[in-house]
Amino acid sequence: MRLLEYKGKELLNKYGVKIPRGGAIVRSLDDIDILNTLKFPLFAKAQVPFAGRAKMGLVRRVDTIKDAENAARDYLGKVIQDYPIRKVLFEEGGVNVAKELYVSITLDRENRGGYLMLASTEGGIDIEEVARRSPEKIIRLYIDDYEGLRDYMIRGVAQKLGLEGSAAQDFVTVAKAMYRVFTEYDAELVEINPLALTTDGQLVALDVKVMIDDNSLYRHPDISVEDSDYTTEELEARKYGLHYVELTGYVGGIMANGAGLTMATMDLVKEFGHEPADFLDVGGGASKDSVREGLKMLLTDDRIKAVLINIFGGITRCDEVARGSC
């Protein structure tokens, strides 16, 4: 799951990454007073787990406490792409950016071993965009999971990024902190984009994206699904062991067993000219209760005009599914 920006920043900052000053989280209008201790102007950033917030008007400069209150009122409770805004992050401005960099650590799926650090002087834009436009500007560092990330490797990357002096040293701190968050928190991705190089030679994480492996949550009591990209519906589905992903379609509430078969069923709906409205995987060996809860979700969704159930009777008992469906 993807953590909200503020939570990712909190984890990175704990291990030494500089983040913008302020960093106050407002959950309701009652919290506004905590902003009084901060230095205005501030930037109000609605905590939603997707890119392009600025374009959607979800990042705003506020000059007074009144402005800040208005921003919080506008954002909180608003639902954007099915995601309810639960928190607003307020940060102080005053970061004088000389250059925006990109850096991330991810699992090296291609080699099925170790990790991969990506870095680029083209920060501030989507890395996929960079990969398309100028792939030569992406620096790749392969990290052996036993060997770990060593300082000399990071210095090599810093050099390729054109960092010098204290900024190069800071980059070692930043990369090591990212690596610690990545390994200690079972992350699938730790990304800082942009990582600002300030005019006085400091590195500050302006925006971050941290994805945590859902399977590891049992050993991270300080990570809450409330701070993730799960929508209200997805959180509800999780309680019953269902995997639910909302799609944009209008027809075919799709419920199947197994991710592959569920996706194939969605694809078939599309193949025959309709738009699938959801992915609902009841998993292997689903009980009648989880089937009933899943079906309830689909039937109460106004967008959905028809429900398509596709169960392969292998491990899952079709009679159990039938019982849950009536």
């Binding site: 944009t248 569920t262 996706m263 969605m266 709906v269 992915f279």
Partner: peptide, 9 residues
Amino acid sequence: TAPPGKRMG
């Protein structure tokens, strides 16, 4: 038809 960036079940 799976949306990008979402883990499919």
